[in-house]
Write a protein that binds this DNA or RNA. Sequence first.
DNA 1: ATATATTACTAAATCGGTTTAGCAAATCAT
DNA 2: ATGATTTGCTAAACCGATTTAGTAATATAT
Lengths: 344, 344
Amino acid sequence: MAKEKKVSIKDVANSLGVSTTLVSVVLNGKARQFRISEEMVRKVQDAALSMNYSPNLIARNLRGGKTQLIGLIVTDISNPFYSSIARIVESRAEELGYTVIFSSSQEDLNNTRRLIDVLLNKGVDGLIVVPCDGSEPVIRKLHESNTPLVLIDRNFPTLDVSFSCLNNYRATELTTGHLIEQGHKNIALIAYNTEMNHVIERIRGYEDTMKKAGLESYINVEKVDLSNSKEEIKAVLGTLIHEKKTEAVIFLTNMLAITGLYCIKEMNVKIPDDLAVVAFNRNDVFNLFYSSVTHIRQPLERIATEATNILVDKIERGELEVKTFAYSEPELIPGDSSRKVIRN
Amino acid sequence: MAKEKKVSIKDVANSLGVSTTLVSVVLNGKARQFRISEEMVRKVQDAALSMNYSPNLIARNLRGGKTQLIGLIVTDISNPFYSSIARIVESRAEELGYTVIFSSSQEDLNNTRRLIDVLLNKGVDGLIVVPCDGSEPVIRKLHESNTPLVLIDRNFPTLDVSFSCLNNYRATELTTGHLIEQGHKNIALIAYNTEMNHVIERIRGYEDTMKKAGLESYINVEKVDLSNSKEEIKAVLGTLIHEKKTEAVIFLTNMLAITGLYCIKEMNVKIPDDLAVVAFNRNDVFNLFYSSVTHIRQPLERIATEATNILVDKIERGELEVKTFAYSEPELIPGDSSRKVIRN
DNA sequence: ATATATTACTAAATCGGTTTAGCAAATCAT
DNA sequence: ATGATTTGCTAAACCGATTTAGTAATATAT
């Protein structure tokens, strides 16, 4: 009662009384190269078709060292941002003849290490990774082992590893600029407490833009723990609103914005009247919040497709030495949440 | 500059001057069975560890016919409901020593067919599938081919295939009962226009509960297209509110609820004053909507874990003939959206 | 007529493991 | 002392493909 076993190349060969070599060669389109007669080519193709033969990829891959598998490690597959990336990578990979295995590191270094091992063991031809905080050494080692590798969403400026990311600096330049245009001055940033490059870049974009507008004295970067605790964010928002007279807040990530908006709702803070808000990435939440939420749109389609393309290039052309740094440009989607409301 | 090739069992064997058989046997814990001396066992384990050996799963699987891969086909991995399932399946599978490959059928029959083929070709040991509308014949065929298979979220009552689903009947029994308790009478249901069993069951739960409460004359099931079009849902809501004097609406799925709430917001309908609402499944959206949304909580953790357990059981114990029908019980999470507001 | 080239195919090695069958040496039984 | 058993290990087959090297039969060249 086990799984029915499939038709093998041997079955096809036997049915025609020829060698497996012949069948393999014909079905791989190398008939000419091996000078197989046209009549035989037809016979083999017909037999393969009628016997419903399809090659055992495991066997093929054992020989060839390729599995047509791509490993994708995100931090959390249940985060809509990453599951969207997963969907796009999956569909692009499929177009290119690859299948994607994905797993979630839960932002944990040990998990990341373990998952990389597991995936390499499964024989993936290459990896697309959202590196978690502190994973630089792991990624470096992986890169040095000459495994085709592309980072996505986040990158390490200290590493020569190809990546496909948002132009993060430009993203906060846009949001900050937008808030300034609206007439806000006391603009704060709520960020994660991490050294990860995408966060650093976003902070830099904010600070530079504030400086350029002569608002240096208002620069205020609040850092909260990656755990996204509601209590912590509530406390920070309380301080900003009641003590620091903050007019506008930029939430540096999607998750931060969702938790932040939840806090704001519970705190009975009115948006944009009491506080203007800008978020990152679209989310159904933003449409349904009582005020439509101004946010940065990341060209997800592009970022994920690019990452896949780069990786497959590396795998197939073996161009491991070529570094591709793909930055995609953000777009500002204005909503009501960032309007300037004149207060008494 | 290709990928560094890994340490093989042969390398370990050579380093000790023993056979690969010995190494294989020891590392698979069959030393006793093969009467390998304890000293040798220690030597082999040490060598394997120090050489950082880990077996090539492809090779192992070619011989054993097992890949330790599970295929998961959902309708849309970017739907938070399914990506949550994916995360849980992934983590349970990992505990059991399996890796998950997943892909999205986009609710399309041809895609489902194709994906099943692709995954089987990759040599997955079994499949967990969210079957799309009309996929009964495909699933039947798959089942008959003796591939370990578990359906999740949706099932076919006409098929003897194991599944792990919500007790869908109970879910609408709960929601409908809740609305009736609140004092609502004119309660409508917005469902998808499909013959899929989970939808049928949910409708049945609603209708039965209405009947039991003597509200038979108020039974009103509105069916909309699976495409989840905002225009269509808006039209339906308009009719319900303005023509049919509907007091309360049950959205039969998460996506319907999200789109529905969006429509409600755009239509300036007040919740729960003008219309009471109940939804399915938790969603960040529900917390941030101006009124907290009453909804059915599906024990996702349980549903997904069960599905994985059942599948691995089938794979490992070969108990293909044993059917497991796992129903998980829903829970009603009350919010403000379903309150009865006395109208003038 | 003999050497060379071409045609149409096949045998066998290989990938990296697992497993079956078996062998030599040591130990035990009689 | 001889046969039987146990101990500790290995050779070789196998999984299902790809690929290299080669062969027999025919055709062409000199």
